[in-house]
Design a binder for these strands. Structure first.
Lengths: 124, 124
DNA sequence: AAAAATAGATTACAGGTGTAGTCTTGAATT
DNA sequence: AATTCAAGACTACACCTGTAATCTATTTTT
């Protein structure tokens, strides 16, 4: 699995919003929440390319970036990894931890029920 | 939140198995899965102390370590953090990702149902 | 055409991390 | 008593990360 740092992921996440995109578009998207200098974001883009998380095509002097993987695939792998490390690969203890500390809303519960429902339908 | 590296967490995790414990006991516990040098583990113990994740009492020339927090509390915070970063704080999309990629077993589903059940009982 | 802006490439640099090795000191062994 | 062992302290060192600044080669702008 490609290992991305937090900052790298956030840049990639901005690209996932809509791609392909140029560096300036990505910088623009990040300008709201992050106080990152333009140079910082460009460094992160280079590192993402180096790690194989992005590719680009040249358009004159600019690069047009595209992610090499889908967000859902990446987050799934990260999730598996996380759950393996902290909960020996079982997902219920994670959810249970949330439940016990009052972190679950009725909406979360409804959504979880739906996930279970869909899963069961799929088994038939 | 105290930030622990992967290796640091694994050492702390070995302590959580049973504590208080000495360095040699922890090294013993880790000797199965990890190929860590004894010195490596001791370095990690020092770093954990420095970060405030452990304390110790002296027993002659040895230290007897105790975690400063409970595993469940630590993993809950890590989980919140993780879910915030990757799923905007919502837990269902994580579970849903697992479901879609056939990562859920019937046992997982049963456990999740129980968590939901317990949550609902608790609401009444 | 000269100057200024801009794209990416390269360099920087401190703090974290994995992974030990060496140093110091007191305890155990011969 | 002298030597060896072992505990923790301190040092090491390369790679990763966050966070840019500088360099180089165009494009724009004046």
């Amino acid at each position: 699995m490609i290992e991305l740092s937090k900052a790298e992921f956030e840049v990639l996440d901005a690209l996932w919003i809509n791609y392909p995109a140029t560096a300036s578009q990505i910088i623009e998207r990040l300008s709201g929440d992050k106080q990152w200098h333009e140079k910082t974001i460009k460094t992160l883009l280079s590192r993402l390319v180096k790690k194989g998380a992005l590719t680009f095509e040249k358009d004159g002097r600019q690069y047009i970036y595209t992610p090499c993987m889908e967000r859902a695939d990446y987050t799934l792998k990260e999730s598996q990894n996380f759950i393996e490390r902290f909960f020996s690969g079982r997902i219920a203890p994670l959810v249970s931890g949330f439940a016990k500390s009052e972190q679950l809303s009725q909406q979360d519960i409804n959504e979880l029920k739906k996930v279970i429902d869909d899963w069961e339908k799929n088994q038939k």
